[in-house]
Simulated scan of single mutants.
Amino acid sequence: MALYGGVDMMDDTRVLALRDGVCVPVREIRAGDAAALQRLVARSSDRSVELRFFGPLKRLSDKQARRFAEVDGRDRFALVALDPEDPGEVVGVVRYEREPGTDAAEYAALVEDRFQDRGLGIGLTRHLIEAARANGLERLYALVMRENAGMLHLLRSLDLPERKRWEDGAEHVEIDLRPSTAA
């Protein structure tokens, strides 16, 4: 059973208040969320999906959805934000996957278009960072398309030390999570 910030997240749902005052339930992802992830991708704009998956994607396959939803809570971890009006629907997801044998993990996020620019992505990411630190990670990195200004802004707004470089036409942003070096 995974621990998130010392709290058993299997039975715990937190609430994240967005900038506009809407309160969104947040919890660790569950295997049963696979279909909700497929619906999230289906509801998202072509542009949001392209920026997240680096190209067009008509639908998230059953295999992909299961892979994203079935995590171990330590090396593969994800948080979902639930629609406050329909808690069976996922409106945002942030995740990391540890590079085997390292203290670094790849970070990714997708927020449904109607919840973008309201503070959901940054709020989820801050909670994910808490979990990453609790699970012994010292670095998160993301590959971000140059035109994904929203994600680049989100990563910069974390106020954590970062390093950037270009890799295969995308910006590789590495965030340092170590408390001794974090601002």
Rank of each mutant, 00 (worst) to 15 (best):
L177W: 04
I129E: 01
E130L: 14
A149C: 05
L57N: 00
L155F: 12
L152G: 05
I129C: 07
V90E: 04
D83F: 10
V111L: 05
Y4D: 12
E85Y: 03
R178Y: 04
D72E: 04
R165I: 02
P25E: 06
R76I: 00
A78H: 01
R67S: 14
D72F: 01
L124R: 12
A104L: 10
I122N: 01
R163F: 11
Q64C: 09
L160V: 09
L60I: 03
R95M: 06
M9W: 10
G136Y: 01
L18Q: 12
E97Y: 02
L158R: 13
V41L: 11
V91A: 10
A34S: 13
Y107V: 04
G55W: 09
V49N: 01
D117H: 15
C23T: 14
R66V: 15
G6I: 10
D20W: 09
W166C: 00
A34L: 05
R178E: 10
A149G: 13
C23G: 11
L40Q: 06
L160S: 07
V22M: 12
R30H: 11
P179V: 12
D176R: 04
R163G: 12
R165L: 10
R139P: 02
R14T: 10
I129R: 02
V93W: 05
V94I: 08
R118C: 13
D8H: 14
S44T: 14
R43G: 00
A78Q: 01
G101V: 02
E106G: 06
E130N: 06
E50C: 14
L37A: 07
E171P: 01
P179Q: 09
G101D: 00
G121Q: 10
A109Y: 04
V111C: 10
V24G: 10
E130Q: 10
R178L: 08
D33G: 07
T181N: 04
A42V: 02
M1G: 13
L160R: 15
N135A: 13
L120I: 11
L152T: 07
V173I: 15
A105F: 03
M145N: 04
A31T: 03
E174D: 04
F53V: 03
A42G: 05
V93P: 03
E130K: 09
V80W: 06
M145P: 00
V91N: 11
A183Q: 14
P87L: 11
D62E: 15
P56H: 09
G150P: 11
D83Y: 11
R95P: 02
L152F: 07
E174C: 10
K164R: 15
E167K: 15
E106Y: 05
R39V: 07
D12P: 01
A183N: 08
R27A: 03
F68A: 09
A149M: 09
D72I: 03
G73L: 09
A65K: 02
L158V: 13
R76E: 02
